[in-house]
């Protein structure tokens, strides 16, 4: 039986791999299980790596978790000399900068995604979409450099003085503290740069979700005499609702863990809570980045790893939520489309 196949395969022009299907049958039977086991092992290695990572983080942060208790999360004092490791300022900075980033990035990403899906010619959409995806390829450190040399001076010299001259300036949380240099290096600046770093992710996912809206449904809307915008927000956006939530979660997860650009821009103030968006602060990731290699005290290293563990858990939760939302969308649209 096998000889027939061997004769047949070269003449049918099958790919070389199949044609070489070696002459001895029983040698091949070993190849398959080995290949299968190898591939499965590599697949499972992914899961092992993830749980290994979690385990290593827990193990290494245990001295801090047991030794410092909740003080890491509830106090502001960060002073390695006095063995005080309160990282509340880092938590606050992480959430505030992420909030600023999301407030800027989400609406921007949505209008861009709508434009790409609904308004422009597919060829144009592809070019524009690629250009925006390229933003995601630019390394974090470059965002940080451009931020510190270009955006910081702009915010400090132009934006903040202008804001303070408008009624907005008297709102709480706007005026930078007198002891800081005018709001350039601040949580707000970090948030602005973060916004552009997560923009491509949110745009790409929302675009894909919006593409899943069935053409017929949209056409029905147009048929009723709706304008483009009415179709967009009453049909497309509503249909793609949960997918967009998934996209936002993905962006959120990215923004929370972004390190280098934030480390450049947020001002590295570990010891006090920000009173204004234009005050310097710190984030979990940048606190780790800036102090880890200088940490000599064992408990400090452990406290930093504990912060890493917290950041890890937060991002994992957001990722899982995002995946779950997006899976649900796929299933529901897959059923309807």
């Amino acid at each position: 039986m096998s000889t027939v196949e061997l004769d047949a395969s070269p003449s049918t022009g099958a790919p070389r791999g199949a044609a070489q299907a070696a002459p001895r049958g029983h040698r091949l039977r070993l190849g398959d299980p080995i290949f299968r086991v190898l591939a499965t092992a590599c697949g499972l290695a992914l899961a092992v790596a993830m749980f290994g990572l979690a385990g290593v983080l827990v193990y290494n942060s245990w001295p801090a978790i047991s030794g410092l208790g909740t003080s890491v999360l509830t106090t502001v004092a960060w002073s390695p000399v006095d063995h005080q490791y309160g990282a509340l300022a880092a938590l606050a900075g992480t959430f505030l900068s992420t909030l600023v980033a999301m407030v800027i990035a989400v609406p921007l990403a949505l209008v861009i995604a709508l434009l790409l899906v609904e308004l422009v010619h597919p060829a144009v959409a592809r070019v524009v979409g690629t250009a925006i995806e390229m933003l995601a390829a630019i390394p974090s450190i470059i965002f940080g450099m451009v931020g510190i040399f270009v955006i910081v001076p702009f915010i400090q010299d132009k934006l903040v003085p202008w804001l303070l001259s408008t009624p907005l300036g008297s709102l709480p949380g706007i005026k930078p503290g007198a002891q800081f240099q005018g709001g350039g290096v601040s949580i707000f600046t970090a948030g602005v740069v973060l916004a552009f770093m997560v923009l491509p992710y949110i745009t790409a996912v929302s675009r894909d979700v919006l593409k899943m809206v069935p053409q017929v449904t949209k056409e029905a809307g147009y048929g009723m005499g709706s304008t483009t915008w009415e179709v967009m927000h009453k049909i497309s956006l509503r249909y793609a609702n949960s997918g967009i939530v998934g996209a936002v979660f993905i962006g959120l997860g990215r923004a929370l863990g972004e390190t280098m650009a934030v480390a450049f821009l947020i001002g590295s103030l570990f010891t006090s809570l920000p009173h204004s968006l234009f005050d310097p602060g710190t984030s979990i990731a940048s606190l780790i980045a800036l102090t880890f290699s200088e940490a000599t005290d064992k408990i400090q290293v452990s406290a930093l790893i504990e912060l890493g563990l917290i950041l890890f858990l937060i991002t994992v939760v957001f990722q899982i939520l995002a995946q779950a939302w997006l899976r649900r969308v796929q299933r529901s649209t897959g059923g309807r489309a």
Binding site: V56, E258, G308, Q319, I320
Partner: peptide
């Protein structure tokens, strides 16, 4: 699912992991 989640883990944490092991 785990692969998707690992893709979203901040790179600094991977650095901490490599430091620890």
């Amino acid at each position: 699912m785990i692969a998707n989640v690992v893709m979203g883990v901040p790179s600094i944490i991977v650095g901490v992991f490599a430091f620890a092991i």
